[in-house]
Write a protein that binds this DNA or RNA. Structure first.
Lengths: 145, 145
DNA sequence: CCTTGACCCTATAGGGACTATAGGCCCTAT
DNA sequence: ATAGGGCCTATAGTCCCTATAGGGTCAAGG
């Protein structure tokens, strides 16, 4: 199957510009071109892009994906590190969830502190000025870069 | 109280470069300078930066913070929209948590699919190629930009 | 008085993963 | 012949910093 970039985009749910971006970043190889200089993709390109998208959907960075692709292109290495990679990801995700739940508590604490009036009566603003945090944690425990 | 930028940074847990960045972005007003051209901050600058950091800790964007600051500088407007802002944030955060839990399920599903051998036996790689997702959802339901 | 070193200054570039814009070519249909 | 839709390249912008280069200021120590 030979497809142009727009069709590939539709097949993979990936935007056209993003496909070109992946090519520029070396995740996708430079495809053949038509006489009119259009990119033409074949089955293995489609599979490769699908792989990339699946990895992105798993929250992996492009450089991690690059490593996975390099590995899958090279038949002679052990893949223990992939398990490690996934494990690390799970930990990262758990940390993010924890932080977000924390944040949600803060926000819910803020919500409805405002009596709907003017500035002076706005408890939300007051809380933000004073840095009052929720009851679940110490001030400034939550670190958002 | 009059402090230089380094001390302000320590007081607020905000990096020096970030303070300068906030100034450039118009969140902090341009402070007075010493004869040697050092920035000098006073109490209200400190309070303002603390406010900004609290907002950031609540996951607000700089433009939202800009709006809040503009509001708090202007005594004549109702602040219902602040509650709306917070509510919107809570919803965003809930969505993020949901997505991350979803992602965590996927990753845990991937984990230990690899038998520790070579490429051919690596079930993780296989799953990523095939786009097999976890049992909790349809393929491609999770959308990570 | 001179030097060291911590702190400060500006201006500019980089990062991650895109997204948007400008300006133009290719191809098909009318 | 022209209108449109899709494709091309190159470049800049997004967000919120972070890093770098190349310098100036100031207090303490020799």
């Amino acid at each position: 199957m030979k497809v142009k970039i727009g069709e590939l985009a539709k097949m993979t749910g990936c935007e056209v510009v993003t496909i070109r971006y992946y090519e520029k970043e070396g995740l996708l190889k430079k495809p053949e071109r038509t006489e009119g200089n259009y990119r033409i993709y074949e089955d293995d390109d489609i599979a490769r892009l699908r792989f990339i998208r699946h990895c992105r959907q798993h929250g992996m960075s492009l450089s991690e994906i690059r490593a996975l692709l390099a590995f899958s292109d090279n038949p002679n290495s052990s893949c223990d590190w992939i398990n490690e990679l996934i494990k690390q990801h799970i930990e990262d995700v758990e940390k993010q969830i924890e932080d977000l739940i924390h944040l949600k508590n803060h926000l819910e604490n803020l919500y409805h502190k405002c009596d709907g009036g003017k500035k002076e009566g706005c408890g939300i603003l007051k809380s933000l000025i004073e840095g009052e945090m929720c009851m679940y944690c110490q001030k400034d425990k939550l670190n958002i870069a």
